[in-house]
Amino acid sequence: MAILKVPSLQHLARNWHDDSSRVKNVLVRLAQNSPTFNYNPLFSAVQDMLVFGQPYDEIAEGIRRGVQREGVRNNFLEVLPLIRDHFDGIAPAFVQPVGRRYYPVGRGLLVPFDPPLIYGVGGRIHFPWFSFWRTNPIAQMRLSLFVTMVDDVLIQDPDLETAKFEILDFSAPAGKKSRELMVIDARDVPRVTAEEKAEMLAVFAEGFFLAQAELAGMKDERPEDRPGDDKRDDDQPGLFD
């Protein structure tokens, strides 16, 4: 039986719909085709560049040698130069990880929030959020929901509430094959109202528990019936990365 794990805050926003049955359908599909990789090597690359000043060529070679699956490896190597260009010339006073937080969605559902890192430049804390989806990144109401929820988290931490919050979107623009980095200043993203947020989260929570119930009633798939790794889109980390 496929198990429905609690999504991250970013995945909650990306998979939100205005109908709980649509949320359910998306979550069931993702639970049945859970991802087989994550983007941790790219987060490690950012820290190697910022903290240790490791040369880009060494980091890229480490990915070429260390990531066995060709599709995943090529995906990482496509994103890596965009990361390099963005952080080139930045000499932070500090770089540090941020501990996991939990966001209450409703009906006892707590969603994890795992910021990769923060860094300080010129006396200001920078809070970058990395979005690695090639297609269909969070946008419009979903982006507003995500930024509003992040605001709720940051305001609880005196060290982070004044941080410069930016979303680094590594998707490919419509009509283009290659990724480009778009830096979104969170201050430019409209927030949802408290009433809108409550309604949106209630719909998601209802969809989550509907998906959980549906999956619990399904029979286990035979191993030969499960989709193979070669059929998955390696760009899409799905729900749980």
Rank of each mutant, 00 (worst) to 15 (best):
L143R: 14
D157V: 11
G108H: 09
R187G: 15
R107A: 13
R100W: 03
L215A: 08
P227Q: 09
G99F: 10
Q54Y: 05
E196I: 00
V6L: 06
G238P: 01
T193I: 12
K219Q: 14
M141T: 12
L30I: 00
R187I: 09
A91P: 09
Q140R: 15
V147S: 00
F165H: 14
E224L: 13
S144L: 01
N136G: 01
L109G: 09
K219L: 14
E166A: 03
G175W: 05
T135M: 00
L27R: 10
H86A: 06
F204M: 07
K5Y: 15
V150P: 00
K164I: 15
D18Y: 04
D235W: 06
M182C: 11
G120D: 05
W129Q: 13
L27W: 10
G108V: 00
A163I: 05
A205S: 15
K177R: 12
P55W: 09
E78R: 13
G207V: 03
A216F: 05
A163S: 14
M141H: 15
D233I: 02
F37D: 04
V23W: 11
V72D: 11
V189L: 07
A211V: 03
G207W: 02
S144N: 09
M200P: 09
F209Y: 15
R64G: 05
V79P: 03
G106Y: 03
V23M: 11
A60P: 03
A93K: 01
M218P: 02
R14G: 01
E195N: 11
T193A: 12
R107T: 02
D48L: 12
L215G: 06
I83D: 04
A198R: 14
G108L: 00
F76G: 01
L154N: 09
I3T: 14
R69T: 10
V23Y: 13
F43Q: 06
A174Q: 11
G122V: 12
E214T: 06
K24R: 14
L77M: 06
E196G: 01
A213Y: 06
Q47G: 07
R222T: 09
V203S: 15
N75Q: 12
D225E: 11
A93G: 00
D229M: 10
N75T: 06
F132T: 15
